[in-house]
Amino acid sequence: MARAVHLGAWFLLGCIASSFVAWLGALHPALFRVMWVVYIMSCASLGIALITDDAVRQFLKLSEADYYALLIAIASAIILGGLLSWLIGG
């Protein structure tokens, strides 16, 4: 139970960080480009993590299921955070 709460807290932190980046992008036109750079770099790092999954997974000492669950959680946190900020009118 404690591990589920811990992982849920990390997921919510990712959603909050993504929402914060999207909010900053909506706040000022100059920060809009910075927001897109952050999102593009996040997508690029997720793509690289998918391509180099065997080497990274062994380095982090994670099982295959845990590694892909981590990647899915990161991707969904990025999408949910930005989407929620957009939906509430940011």
Results as ranks from 00 to 15, higher is better:
residue 70 L to K: 07
residue 13 L to W: 11
residue 52 T to K: 14
residue 64 E to L: 09
residue 5 V to Q: 03
residue 23 W to T: 11
residue 32 F to D: 05
residue 27 L to P: 08
residue 41 M to S: 05
residue 63 S to K: 14
residue 9 A to K: 04
residue 25 G to E: 02
residue 15 C to I: 02
residue 51 I to P: 01
residue 17 A to L: 13
residue 22 A to P: 03
residue 26 A to K: 11
residue 49 A to M: 05
residue 63 S to G: 15
residue 46 L to D: 03
residue 75 A to Y: 04
residue 27 L to H: 11
residue 37 V to E: 01
residue 40 I to W: 03
residue 63 S to L: 13
residue 71 L to D: 06
residue 26 A to Y: 10
residue 50 L to I: 06
residue 6 H to P: 14
residue 25 G to T: 02
residue 49 A to T: 06
residue 55 A to D: 12
residue 45 S to C: 02
residue 36 W to G: 03
residue 65 A to F: 01
residue 28 H to Q: 09
residue 43 C to H: 10
residue 53 D to P: 07
residue 33 R to W: 15
residue 28 H to R: 08
residue 12 L to Y: 02
residue 36 W to T: 10
residue 68 Y to F: 15
residue 27 L to V: 09
residue 52 T to Y: 12
residue 5 V to Y: 06
residue 8 G to S: 10
residue 43 C to V: 13
residue 69 A to G: 08
residue 33 R to V: 14
residue 34 V to G: 00
residue 57 R to W: 02
residue 51 I to H: 11
residue 56 V to W: 04
residue 41 M to A: 08
residue 56 V to P: 00
residue 52 T to W: 14
residue 9 A to N: 06
residue 20 F to K: 03
residue 33 R to I: 13
residue 45 S to G: 02
residue 60 L to P: 10
residue 42 S to R: 15
residue 40 I to H: 04
residue 64 E to P: 08
residue 19 S to H: 02
residue 46 L to F: 09
residue 70 L to Q: 06
residue 12 L to A: 07
residue 41 M to Y: 05
residue 18 S to Q: 11
residue 56 V to K: 05
residue 46 L to R: 06
residue 17 A to C: 13
residue 63 S to E: 12
residue 5 V to E: 01
residue 66 D to L: 11
residue 64 E to I: 13
residue 55 A to K: 14
residue 16 I to Q: 02
residue 50 L to E: 00
residue 46 L to N: 03
residue 38 V to Q: 00
residue 76 S to N: 10
residue 35 M to P: 05
residue 29 P to K: 02
residue 35 M to F: 12
residue 59 F to W: 15
residue 22 A to V: 07
residue 47 G to T: 00
residue 32 F to C: 08
residue 9 A to L: 10
